Amino acid sequence: MTIEETREYIGMWVTKDGNIRHELLPNNRYNEARGNRKSAYQGDYCITGNHIEYKDDTGFTADGEFKNGILYHAGMILYKEK
């Protein structure tokens, strides 16, 4: 997908308690913060439709779905920061 097609997904996504934070960057990279760790995981992401595939820099993969403005990922629910 192009940046134009994924623009609504770019930005910071956080769990309700703020403990997990996914920053989806415009260059198809992401940074995941957990608690006090500002860069717990980093890697690439790819969005197709409303599906996101993550591959961190260690090779670990995960995925998620965007539904009604909410990101569902690995049992977590993340909301986009305004």
Rank of each mutant, 00 (worst) to 15 (best):
D56L: 00
H73E: 02
E8V: 03
R37F: 09
A33D: 02
G64T: 05
F66P: 13
G43A: 10
D63G: 14
N50T: 06
G64L: 00
G64R: 00
L25K: 12
S39N: 01
K55N: 06
L78N: 13
W13R: 00
I77N: 06
D57R: 12
A62C: 04
I77H: 06
N50Q: 11
D57P: 09
E5V: 02
Y72R: 06
N68V: 02
K82Q: 15
Y72G: 03
T6S: 06
T58M: 04
D56E: 05
A62P: 07
Y54F: 08
I77W: 00
N50D: 05
T48R: 09
E8I: 01
R34A: 12
E65P: 08
I47D: 03
E53F: 15
I20N: 09
G18H: 03
S39Y: 07
L24F: 13
L24A: 15
I20T: 05
R7F: 12
L71N: 12
N19T: 01
L78W: 00
K16E: 08
N31I: 02
N19W: 13
N27T: 08
Y79I: 02
I52R: 01
H51A: 01
Y9S: 01
G35P: 10
H51N: 13
W13S: 01
T48G: 07
Y72I: 06
G43R: 11
G75A: 03
R21P: 15
T2P: 12
L71A: 04
C46Q: 04
T6H: 05
N36I: 15
R37N: 14
I10D: 12
D56T: 02
E53M: 12
K82N: 13
G75F: 00
N31K: 15
D56P: 07
S39D: 13
T2E: 03
Y54C: 03
E23N: 08
T58Y: 08
E23T: 10
E5M: 05
E23G: 07
N50P: 11
E4Y: 13
A62H: 05
R29F: 02
N28V: 08
R7L: 15
G18M: 08
E4W: 10
R7S: 03
H51Q: 02
N36A: 10
D63H: 15
L25Q: 07
E53H: 07
G11S: 04
I20Y: 08
T58D: 12
A62L: 04
F60N: 09
G43D: 06
Y54M: 05
R37C: 10
N31H: 12
D44N: 15
M12C: 03
